[in-house]
Amino acid sequence: MTRFRLPTWFVLLLPAIIVLVAVVLIPLVLSLYSSFTPYRLTRPESLYKWIGTFNYEKAVKSAHFWAAFGRTVLLLTIALNLEMLMGLGLALLVNRVTYGQRALRTLMMFPMMFSPVLVGFQFKFIFNDNVGLVNNALQSLGLTDVAIPWLVDGKLAFMSILAAEMWSSTSVFAILILAGLFAVPRDPIEAAKVDGCTPWQSFRHITLPYIMPFIYIALAIRSLDVARAYDIVQIMTNGGPARRTELLWTMIGRTGYVDAKMGYANAMGYISIFLAIFFTIYFFRKLNAARTELGMAG
């Protein structure tokens, strides 16, 4: 009688499969399952009660959820566009520098070296209505007498968060676009000059198509970043006041860990993931289109 033996390829893949199952698959399946239960961290037995799509229906019907969803999309749109424009401007300026460019490039990356939590604390201080830098500066310059409630007013708080987000991440765009600018060949630009292009026209028609792939990579990376934004907001406003700066993940985090409603939090999480997936697919499509334009796609 021959003993049953596992096929060799399976045995060889087994370590990888075990790790993947333990680290990715089980948590994924468990969280997906729990989103169909009224699971609360404080009551473990609730994990075994099946309630179907109740959590999903609750989320979809929740005004708070959609407000947070909309706010996240808004933050993502505004932050990405402004960061892209500023990063592009910064990269173009640094690209013109001939002396001390290396030092400038390093300086430019400083904001990326700080933990977002610390950035949150720093901007919480900067925008504090009593002792904050901004109000002190405005009052000292005589521009205003009142203490502007930067982090209390809903719109101002959103702008403050946006400022912090941009400060910490514009350099992601700047660095990637600068890398793109370094890769632009000199000849087509010179050909464009001879062909009658003004500096703006050569940028618009020649340089920009060359750096578009780099811009899309930066957009893809940053869209994932902002879609899961949590730390800066959590520190600066904690989603408040009264949910006025609540984003998807601050809401999900609170629901899951503060209110202990893990089943509901997981359901919202799964809906939110689609946002991230959508943006990733969108920007990668754009990236491939831009690369095909340049004849770079394989």
Binding site: A191, K193, D195, I206
Partner: peptide
């Protein structure tokens, strides 16, 4: 260069890779 009314042919051709031949010629 744009005001000199000259044309130049480069060693590496310096074509615009994202434009068709027609667009390159008419640019």
């Amino acid at each position: 260069p744009r005001s000199r009314n000259i044309s130049m042919v480069f060693q590496n051709y310096a074509l615009y890779p994202h434009m068709t031949v027609r667009e390159n010629l008419g640019f």
